[in-house]
């Protein structure tokens, strides 16, 4: 699930870096000499239509068609058994139920925003900070980098399993540690241990620590790549002007990295909305770990699927994600050479 986010930064760094390049005098602006479609032979033209058409079709067919279908289905009631004749149109009823009756909905929205806030204000800045430190080419920098990046190559599902070993009620590391520190023996005084994953006020935070464990390294690598692309003459010039380190970063480097900052912002937002695996392996998104993404699958799966209702949650998730997506498209496409 994180893959897309990961991908984004990269893909986005590409166009964005070219924009960054424009700022830097060292990168010559590229001249575009693209060939016009019309001068090609018929056969070549067909080849090109094939080259673009087939992948575009697959993409549209498996992503955009279902997206539109989600919107349409959100106005219906259907238990997933039988064909279209079983689909009933019920207008906005699903949305009313969502708003007023379906109890997990508002907690899920809240949890998604808490997730976003934690990433945005803690995990992402920490990743950026470490990137800035590592950019100094300290001795052993590669080792630090490797260690911090390691969780990123793990699936969030595995991250969930590994952190359960830390949080588990009887066998987990933290509770055992606390027992040793406080001198209690958990058998005789049940309840002294902290129910990290079962307490609905705590478990979201416990999961966020695990998720951040992975997110920090991710942001670090992305940002480090951006920092490496910054022309050193900028730093030199700033130093000559008498700027201190902090000033250099905030007044010179940070603005130059605007494109990658956008990428990191969007990655953080999208990752927060996509969060699914870790919560699903821990308790299927029940009891304090409700997220919009999990509610959608909860309504889809099981003996009696609520297809229409689940789709209405998908539409809410779509509406929340569409803002950052448009923002991102606007920023990158503006920089994309025509």
């Amino acid at each position: 699930m994180s893959e897309f986010a990961v991908t984004q930064p990269v893909s986005s760094t590409a166009p964005s870096a070219s924009a960054g390049g424009a700022v830097l005098p060292t990168t010559p602006a590229k001249k575009r000499r693209r060939r016009k479609f019309s001068v090609l032979t018929r056969r070549d033209r067909l080849t090109l239509v094939f080259m673009v058409g087939v992948p575009a079709f697959i993409h549209i067919f498996l992503i955009w068609v279902p997206t539109v279908a989600s919107i349409i289905l959100s106005f219906t009631k259907w238990n997933g058994v039988g064909g279209i004749e079983k689909i009933q149109w019920i207008g906005l009823r699903n949305y009313e139920v969502l708003k007023d009756i379906y109890q997990p909905f508002w907690p899920a929205v809240q949890h998604n925003f808490i997730w976003l806030g934690t990433f945005l204000f803690i995990a992402t800045p920490l990743g950026m900070l470490i990137a800035v430190i590592l950019d100094r080419n300290l001795r052993g920098s590669r080792i630090y980098q490797s260690v911090l990046y390691m969780p990123v190559v793990l699936s969030l599902a595995i991250v969930g399993f590994i952190w359960q070993l830390i949080y588990a009620p009887g066998s987990g590391f933290i509770n055992n540690f606390l027992d040793v520190v406080t001198g209690s023996t958990k058998w005789t005084t049940p309840g002294t241990a902290i129910d990290w994953l079962g307490n609905h006020d705590l478990n979201l935070w416990a999961v966020l620590v695990a998720a951040s464990w992975r997110h920090v390294g991710y942001i670090m690598v992305l940002y480090l790549a951006g920092l490496k692309s910054v022309d050193n003459t900028l730093r030199e010039a700033a130093a000559i002007d008498g700027a201190n380190a902090r000033q250099t970063f905030f007044r010179v480097i940070f603005p130059v990295l605007a494109p990658i900052n956008v990428v990191i912002l969007v990655v953080t937002v999208i990752e927060s909305l996509r969060a699914f695996d870790i919560v699903y392996v821990i308790n299927k998104g029940l009891n304090g770990l409700e997220l919009l993404s999990v509610l959608i699958t909860t309504n889809l799966l099981g003996e009696a699927s609520l297809i229409g209702f689940g789709s209405s949650i998908a539409v809410v998730l779509l509406l929340i994600s569409i803002g950052p997506i448009i923002f991102y498209l606007y920023r990158t496409m503006r920089e994309q050479p025509e």
């Binding site: 379906y102 029940l286 009891n287 509610l295 909860t298 099981g302 009696a304 609520l306």
Partner: peptide
């Protein structure tokens, strides 16, 4: 079953 599932009673009882 739709009432008994994660959407309904499972969540309510938790």
């Amino acid at each position: 079953p739709a009432f008994a599932g994660a959407n309904g009673m499972q969540g309510f009882l938790q």
